[in-house]
């Protein structure tokens, strides 16, 4: 397996604050890797370290096999970075801004032969900025500003693109457009995408890393992580009547971890969280019928990424207390 980014025991501390505590994870080449975590978890600090903006207190970051600390100003050859706050000059026109970013990123060997106009035109087309290329960045909508910032991250045609919360603060239409843009980048780049919008991760990413309180909780393919953290089946039923004395019966009969009871106007919704993956659907539905609960609906819940993320971060927070 070829990795584009390898983090090995990275720590970052400021006086009195340990922002990152020996975090390690890898990003596979050619994938969109989601970097998940609540606000203040350490996502932006990690991304700043990978891009070479911040030095780690200890540990090693390797980008395409090379140590980032040794690269200094050379990281832009490999990494295009969109920070949390897009670095835009609001008084510049989009084309002028992209030309400026291209010129200050030129390498010595490219300096004489590089066609800046051609490169900028290509980026403008890739990021669908043709309509606004002559407008001041300060007059653009947030969506277009974000596109311009992503375009700036792509001017050096880097192999790796790091996007720190690229859809934050955008309207739903712009969010969809930015997601489509990110998906289109997958063909040419490895993408590390930080977000706390879990739905976004399930739409875009094949692999994820979850960080909380400066520690990595899990890293790998989404489905594998879900399996690891999901303890058992989740069965959802809707019945006409329910009394608490029946609860003990079901707990005795089946390997149930917990039961959520949600009373509605004409029915009761029951969610059984099992301790394992044993298939008890037939027995459970029969028992609900036999005990005159009046079974109205029965289904198996696929645990969504939001509840799964909530579950593991809550568990980590509890462990820390």
């Amino acid at each position: 397996m070829e990795y584009a980014i390898i983090l090995d025991k990275i720590s970052k501390s400021w006086p009195g604050v340990l922002a990152l505590d020996e975090i390690s994870f890898q990003v596979k080449k050619g994938t969109i890797h989601g970097f998940l975590g609540p606000n203040g978890a350490g996502k932006s600090t990690t991304m700043n370290i990978i891009s070479g903006l911040l030095p780690p207190t200890s540990g090693e970051v390797k980008v395409l096999g090379q140590n980032v600390q040794g690269l200094q100003n050379e990281t832009q050859k490999f990494i295009g970075f969109l920070p949390e706050h897009p670095p835009l000059y609001l008084t510049m026109k989009v084309r002028d801004y992209l030309e400026f970013v291209t010129k200050i990123n030129l390498r010595k060997q490219d300096y004489k032969n590089f066609d800046v106009n051609k490169c900028v035109q290509e980026i403008i087309e890739r990021c669908s900025l043709q309509k606004v290329e002559g407008r001041l960045i300060g007059n653009l909508s947030k969506g277009f500003r974000q596109r311009a910032a992503i375009a700036a991250a792509l001017v050096t045609n880097p192999e790796i693109v790091i996007l720190d919360e690229p859809t934050v603060g955008l309207d739903p239409v712009s969010i969809i457009e930015i997601r489509e843009l990110i998906l289109s980048l997958r063909e040419r780049h490895t993408i590390l995408l930080s977000t706390h919008i879990l739905h976004e991760v399930s739409l875009l990413c094949s692999d994820i890393t979850i960080i909380n309180n400066g520690r990595i909780l899990s890293s790998g393919p989404i489905e594998e992580i879900k399996k690891t953290f999901t303890l058992g089946r989740v069965l959802k039923t809707e019945v006409e009547t329910w009394s608490d004395d029946k609860k003990d019966y079901f707990f005795n009969q089946f390997n149930i971890d917990s039961l959520d009871i949600n009373k509605k106007s004409n029915s009761v919704e029951l969610t059984f969280y099992l301790k394992d993956m044993e298939d008890i659907r037939t027995r459970l539905s029969s028992d609900l019928i036999n005990m005159d609960c009046g079974l109205l609906a029965f289904s198996e819940e696929k645990i969504d990424i939001e509840s799964f993320f909530k579950k593991i971060t809550e568990k980590d927070n509890l462990n820390r207390i």
């Binding site: 891009s51 100003n73 990281t75 832009q76 970075f81 670095p87 835009l88 000059y89 970013v101 200050i104």
Partner: peptide, 9 residues
Amino acid sequence: TIELLYLSN
């Protein structure tokens, strides 16, 4: 925008 300058050449 200082980050843009820091990350440049």
